[in-house]
Amino acid sequence: MSQQLVNAIALGSIYTLFSLGLTLSWGILNVLNLAHGAIFTAGTMFAFLLTEHAAGLPFAVVLVAALVGSALLAVLMEAVAFAPIRARSANALDAEMRTLIASVAVASIIVTVVGIQSDHQPYALPQSLLERHRYDLLGVHVSNVQILVLVAAIVLSVLLVLFVRRSRYGRAMRAVAFDRTAAGMVGISARTLQLAAMALSGALAGVAGVLLAVYLGAADAHMGDSFLLKAFAIIILAGVGSLEGAVFFAYALALVETLVGYYLGGDVRDALAFVLIVVILVLRPQGLAARQGWQRA
């Protein structure tokens, strides 16, 4: 059982990195970005191609390259699809729906390309990229990869929270999440802010993807799908835009899923995130839907 907990912590760390990126784009751009899972997958493909064509690169370089590649991909998506669509939408509902569908379309492109690139087979990052070690801690096996995943999640979460709390960009992001016209007050254009949010979001997805690929030993074109919906459950539990909440609920969900899977079986575990989404949305809509306060009109 304690072995299961170690696995839950590693899983929670991946959930954390994945969800933080998604909650940024929802909170700041008001887009339900269904391509986030595809960008996560693209991160693993960047890493894979790099290790194929430039064997022997240190892991840190591969990780950073995948991070940059995913960030650029997310920025490209924002610049080519989301921003023009928002600019031509008649109202909020129209913009939300059309960016959501655009994100699905972009995901379809990315997943198809990754699928062709990998011949629709799982692909593995080379063992030499990161030598595995196992440690015995109080009778539980812990691998260096699990520790790396945990440390990466903690460090990146803390950096992101500090960035959003302390930096000018972060303050502008919070201002925009609260009031969509407020970015200008902090002296940063909404345009810059949206691109920055998407870059951060994509970078986090890329890092999460590479770490998961290293952790599991392999990746495939559709690996992002299941994470996407779990991340939505986490964001809804935490409240859209709440970074600290996303971190907490990422670990909580991983833990509960692990326990449920252990005691009740895989079917129940797989349904858990979706049931949580519906139940939480129904029971606590006032807290979650606070931005829809048209009574203030």
Partner: peptide
């Protein structure tokens, strides 16, 4: 009735979850 108070992306999310639950239900 259950989803009556949800709006916009929150409703979208809840209904996506419903779609996936139907699929899980079909499997189980």
């Amino acid at each position: 009735l259950v989803l009556a108070r949800l709006r916009a992306l929150y409703l979208a999310m809840a209904t996506i979850a419903f779609v996936l639950l139907v699929q899980i239900g079909a499997l189980a």
